[in-house]
Protein backbone atom coordinates (compact mmCIF):
# COMPACT_ATOMS: atom_id res chain seq x y z
CA UNK A 1 0.00 0.00 0.00
CA UNK A 2 1.21 3.46 -0.91
CA UNK A 3 -0.42 6.61 0.41
CA UNK A 4 0.91 10.16 0.43
CA UNK A 5 -1.11 13.13 1.63
CA UNK A 6 -0.16 16.76 1.09
CA UNK A 7 -2.19 19.73 2.37
CA UNK A 8 -1.28 21.97 -0.54
CA UNK A 9 -2.06 20.45 -3.91
CA UNK A 10 -0.74 23.73 -5.35
CA UNK A 11 2.80 22.43 -4.76
CA UNK A 12 2.14 19.45 -7.06
CA UNK A 13 0.59 21.75 -9.67
CA UNK A 14 3.75 23.87 -9.63
CA UNK A 15 6.02 20.82 -9.92
CA UNK A 16 4.06 19.50 -12.91
CA UNK A 17 4.10 22.92 -14.57
CA UNK A 18 7.86 22.99 -14.13
CA UNK A 19 8.61 19.61 -15.71
CA UNK A 20 5.87 18.83 -18.22
CA UNK A 21 7.53 20.73 -21.08
CA UNK A 22 10.73 18.71 -20.68
CA UNK A 23 9.21 15.28 -20.05
CA UNK A 24 6.19 13.56 -21.59
CA UNK A 25 6.20 10.77 -19.06
CA UNK A 26 8.25 9.82 -16.02
CA UNK A 27 8.56 7.20 -13.32
CA UNK A 28 7.85 8.22 -9.74
CA UNK A 29 9.89 5.96 -7.45
CA UNK A 30 8.23 5.68 -4.08
CA UNK A 31 10.07 4.33 -1.04
CA UNK A 32 10.11 4.86 2.71
CA UNK A 33 12.33 7.91 2.24
CA UNK A 34 9.99 9.65 -0.18
CA UNK A 35 9.10 10.12 -3.83
CA UNK A 36 11.88 10.47 -6.41
CA UNK A 37 11.79 11.17 -10.10
CA UNK A 38 14.79 11.23 -12.39
CA UNK A 39 14.53 11.46 -16.17
CA UNK A 40 16.31 12.92 -19.17
CA UNK A 41 14.44 14.75 -21.89
CA UNK A 42 14.15 12.99 -25.26
CA UNK A 43 17.25 14.65 -26.67
CA UNK A 44 19.41 13.76 -23.61
CA UNK A 45 20.42 17.40 -23.15
CA UNK A 46 18.75 17.96 -19.77
CA UNK A 47 17.85 15.83 -16.77
CA UNK A 48 15.11 16.45 -14.22
CA UNK A 49 15.71 15.23 -10.68
CA UNK A 50 12.91 15.61 -8.13
CA UNK A 51 13.04 14.57 -4.49
CA UNK A 52 10.06 14.86 -2.16
CA UNK A 53 10.96 13.65 1.34
CA UNK A 54 8.44 11.48 3.15
CA UNK A 55 8.69 13.70 6.28
CA UNK A 56 7.47 16.67 4.22
CA UNK A 57 4.08 15.02 3.65
CA UNK A 58 1.22 15.30 6.12
CA UNK A 59 0.78 11.55 5.91
CA UNK A 60 3.09 9.10 4.19
CA UNK A 61 2.96 5.33 4.00
CA UNK A 62 4.95 3.13 1.65
CA UNK A 63 4.94 -0.57 2.59
CA UNK A 64 6.87 -1.69 -0.48
CA UNK A 65 9.02 0.18 -2.98
CA UNK A 66 6.85 1.14 -5.92
CA UNK A 67 7.58 2.64 -9.32
CA UNK A 68 4.69 4.50 -10.90
CA UNK A 69 5.10 5.43 -14.55
CA UNK A 70 2.87 8.37 -15.36
CA UNK A 71 2.00 10.46 -18.37
CA UNK A 72 2.69 13.99 -17.10
CA UNK A 73 0.21 15.75 -19.41
CA UNK A 74 -2.57 13.48 -18.10
CA UNK A 75 -1.41 14.01 -14.54
CA UNK A 76 -1.51 17.78 -15.13
CA UNK A 77 -5.09 17.43 -16.44
CA UNK A 78 -6.07 15.74 -13.18
CA UNK A 79 -4.36 18.38 -11.03
CA UNK A 80 -6.16 21.12 -13.00
CA UNK A 81 -9.34 19.70 -11.43
CA UNK A 82 -8.03 20.52 -7.94
CA UNK A 83 -8.19 23.87 -6.22
CA UNK A 84 -4.89 25.20 -4.90
CA UNK A 85 -6.11 24.92 -1.29
CA UNK A 86 -7.30 21.33 -1.67
CA UNK A 87 -5.55 18.53 0.15
CA UNK A 88 -4.29 15.85 -2.22
CA UNK A 89 -3.90 12.18 -1.39
CA UNK A 90 -2.07 9.88 -3.81
CA UNK A 91 -2.89 6.21 -3.35
CA UNK A 92 -1.87 2.95 -5.02
CA UNK A 93 -2.01 -0.70 -4.05
CA UNK A 94 1.18 -2.80 -4.24
CA UNK A 95 1.68 -4.00 -7.83
CA UNK A 96 -1.23 -1.85 -8.96
CA UNK A 97 -1.68 -0.65 -12.51
CA UNK A 98 -3.68 2.40 -11.44
CA UNK A 99 -3.05 5.35 -9.14
CA UNK A 100 -5.77 7.36 -7.40
CA UNK A 101 -5.64 11.08 -6.72
CA UNK A 102 -8.14 12.32 -4.15
CA UNK A 103 -8.77 16.03 -3.66
CA UNK A 104 -10.50 17.30 -0.52
CA UNK A 105 -11.68 20.84 0.04
CA UNK A 106 -10.71 22.39 3.40
CA UNK A 107 -14.11 21.93 5.02
CA UNK A 108 -14.72 18.55 3.35
CA UNK A 109 -17.61 20.08 1.38
CA UNK A 110 -16.22 18.62 -1.84
CA UNK A 111 -14.27 15.41 -2.30
CA UNK A 112 -13.28 14.16 -5.73
CA UNK A 113 -11.15 11.28 -6.89
CA UNK A 114 -9.47 10.54 -10.19
CA UNK A 115 -7.98 7.24 -11.23
CA UNK A 116 -5.21 7.14 -13.77
CA UNK A 117 -3.71 4.16 -15.57
CA UNK A 118 -0.01 3.65 -14.83
CA UNK A 119 2.56 3.04 -17.56
CA UNK A 120 5.46 0.62 -17.62
CA UNK A 121 8.26 2.95 -18.64
CA UNK A 122 11.32 0.82 -17.94
CA UNK A 123 13.46 3.90 -17.35
CA UNK A 124 17.15 3.66 -16.56
CA UNK A 125 18.26 4.78 -13.13
CA UNK A 126 21.25 7.06 -13.36
CA UNK A 127 23.97 7.67 -10.79
CA UNK A 128 24.83 11.35 -10.52
CA UNK A 129 28.44 11.81 -9.43
CA UNK A 130 29.23 14.13 -6.52
CA UNK A 131 30.93 17.23 -7.90
CA UNK A 132 32.89 19.98 -6.14
CA UNK A 133 31.68 22.89 -8.22
CA UNK A 134 33.99 25.76 -9.14
CA UNK A 135 31.15 28.28 -8.74
CA UNK A 136 27.90 28.17 -6.80
CA UNK A 137 25.57 31.12 -7.30
CA UNK A 138 22.43 31.75 -5.26
CA UNK A 139 20.11 34.46 -6.50
CA UNK A 140 16.40 35.38 -6.51
CA UNK A 141 14.59 32.87 -8.75
CA UNK A 142 12.45 35.66 -10.24
CA UNK A 143 15.55 37.60 -11.27
CA UNK A 144 17.07 34.54 -12.95
CA UNK A 145 13.78 33.95 -14.84
CA UNK A 146 13.70 37.58 -15.91
CA UNK A 147 17.27 37.49 -17.25
CA UNK A 148 16.69 34.25 -19.21
CA UNK A 149 13.47 35.64 -20.72
CA UNK A 150 15.04 39.00 -21.60
CA UNK A 151 18.18 37.55 -23.18
CA UNK A 152 16.27 34.91 -25.17
CA UNK A 153 15.00 37.76 -27.35
CA UNK A 154 18.53 38.38 -28.64
CA UNK A 155 20.16 34.98 -29.01
CA UNK A 156 19.76 31.23 -28.77
CA UNK A 157 22.49 30.77 -26.16
CA UNK A 158 23.42 32.43 -22.89
CA UNK A 159 26.98 32.52 -21.64
CA UNK A 160 27.16 32.50 -17.86
CA UNK A 161 30.49 33.83 -16.59
CA UNK A 162 31.19 33.75 -12.89
CA UNK A 163 34.08 35.58 -11.25
CA UNK A 164 34.53 36.82 -7.70
CA UNK A 165 33.21 40.22 -8.80
CA UNK A 166 29.88 38.80 -9.91
CA UNK A 167 27.98 36.85 -12.53
CA UNK A 168 27.58 37.96 -16.12
CA UNK A 169 24.86 36.65 -18.44
CA UNK A 170 25.61 37.41 -22.12
CA UNK A 171 24.11 36.67 -25.47
CA UNK A 172 24.33 37.90 -29.02
CA UNK A 173 22.53 37.57 -32.31
CA UNK A 174 21.37 39.43 -35.42
CA UNK A 175 20.18 42.47 -33.43
CA UNK A 176 23.36 42.86 -31.41
CA UNK A 177 24.53 41.81 -27.98
CA UNK A 178 23.08 41.82 -24.47
CA UNK A 179 24.88 41.63 -21.13
CA UNK A 180 23.44 41.51 -17.63
CA UNK A 181 25.79 41.70 -14.65
CA UNK A 182 24.70 40.70 -11.18
CA UNK A 183 26.83 41.59 -8.18
CA UNK A 184 26.94 39.84 -4.85
CA UNK A 185 24.72 41.58 -2.31
CA UNK A 186 25.27 42.27 1.35
CA UNK A 187 21.59 42.13 2.07
CA UNK A 188 21.56 39.78 5.04
CA UNK A 189 18.13 40.86 6.22
CA UNK A 190 16.20 39.80 3.16
CA UNK A 191 17.63 36.39 2.37
CA UNK A 192 15.24 35.79 -0.52
CA UNK A 193 16.53 38.90 -2.33
CA UNK A 194 20.22 38.22 -1.83
CA UNK A 195 22.84 37.17 -4.38
CA UNK A 196 25.70 35.05 -3.05
CA UNK A 197 28.64 33.64 -4.98
CA UNK A 198 30.96 30.89 -3.76
CA UNK A 199 33.85 30.74 -6.19
CA UNK A 200 36.86 28.42 -6.21
CA UNK A 201 37.81 29.22 -9.83
CA UNK A 202 36.19 31.46 -12.44
CA UNK A 203 33.97 29.58 -14.90
CA UNK A 204 32.43 30.58 -18.20
CA UNK A 205 29.97 28.23 -19.90
CA UNK A 206 27.35 28.57 -22.64
CA UNK A 207 23.85 27.10 -22.45
CA UNK A 208 20.77 26.94 -24.69
CA UNK A 209 18.19 29.63 -23.81
CA UNK A 210 15.34 27.27 -24.58
CA UNK A 211 16.30 24.90 -21.74
CA UNK A 212 17.11 27.63 -19.23
CA UNK A 213 13.71 29.16 -19.91
CA UNK A 214 12.04 25.77 -19.41
CA UNK A 215 13.75 25.40 -16.01
CA UNK A 216 12.47 28.80 -14.89
CA UNK A 217 8.92 27.39 -15.00
CA UNK A 218 9.90 26.16 -11.51
CA UNK A 219 10.19 29.76 -10.24
CA UNK A 220 6.89 29.66 -8.26
CA UNK A 221 8.33 26.81 -6.15
CA UNK A 222 11.14 28.78 -4.51
CA UNK A 223 12.23 32.37 -3.89
CA UNK A 224 15.88 31.49 -4.57
CA UNK A 225 17.59 29.45 -7.27
CA UNK A 226 21.05 27.90 -7.03
CA UNK A 227 23.28 27.60 -10.11
CA UNK A 228 26.29 25.28 -9.79
CA UNK A 229 28.96 25.29 -12.49
CA UNK A 230 32.28 23.66 -13.27
CA UNK A 231 34.14 23.29 -16.56
CA UNK A 232 33.06 20.30 -18.63
CA UNK A 233 30.23 19.17 -16.36
CA UNK A 234 26.50 19.89 -16.58
CA UNK A 235 25.05 23.03 -15.01
CA UNK A 236 22.82 22.30 -12.03
CA UNK A 237 19.82 24.61 -11.54
CA UNK A 238 18.25 23.87 -8.16
CA UNK A 239 15.00 24.98 -6.58
CA UNK A 240 14.45 24.06 -2.93
CA UNK A 241 10.82 23.22 -2.25
CA UNK A 242 10.25 24.50 1.30
CA UNK A 243 9.91 21.71 3.91
CA UNK A 244 9.46 19.08 1.19
CA UNK A 245 12.50 18.56 -1.02
CA UNK A 246 14.05 19.88 -4.19
CA UNK A 247 13.74 20.06 -7.95
CA UNK A 248 17.05 20.03 -9.85
CA UNK A 249 17.70 20.43 -13.53
CA UNK A 250 20.98 19.33 -15.14
CA UNK A 251 21.95 20.87 -18.48
CA UNK A 252 24.78 19.91 -20.81
CA UNK A 253 26.78 22.96 -21.90
CA UNK A 254 27.16 23.99 -25.51
CA UNK A 255 30.52 23.01 -26.95
CA UNK A 256 32.55 25.71 -28.69
CA UNK A 257 34.00 24.61 -32.02
Amino acid sequence: MFEARLTASATFKKILDAIKDLLNEASFDCSESGIQLQAMDNSHVSLVSLMLRSDGFDKYRCDRNLTMGMNLANMAKIFKCANNEDTVTIKAQDDADIVTFMFEAKKQEKISDYEMKLMNLDQEHLGIPETDFSCVIRMPSGEFARICKDLAQFGESIMISCTKEGVKFSTGGDIGTANVKIAQTNNFEKEEESVTIEMQEPVSLTFACQYLNSFTKATPLASQVQLSMSDNVPLVVEYQIPDLGHLRFYLAPKIEE
Partner: peptide, 14 residues
Amino acid sequence: TSTQGRLDGFFTVL
Protein backbone atom coordinates in the same frame (compact mmCIF):
# COMPACT_ATOMS: atom_id res chain seq x y z
CA THR B 1 29.77 28.49 -33.58
CA SER B 2 28.84 25.99 -30.91
CA THR B 3 27.01 22.69 -30.79
CA GLN B 4 24.72 21.41 -28.06
CA GLY B 5 26.43 18.87 -25.81
CA ARG B 6 24.59 15.86 -24.44
CA LEU B 7 24.40 14.39 -20.96
CA ASP B 8 25.32 10.83 -21.98
CA GLY B 9 28.60 9.97 -20.35
CA PHE B 10 28.19 12.35 -17.42
CA PHE B 11 26.04 9.93 -15.48
CA THR B 12 26.49 6.23 -14.80
CA VAL B 13 23.66 3.79 -15.47
CA LEU B 14 22.86 2.01 -12.21
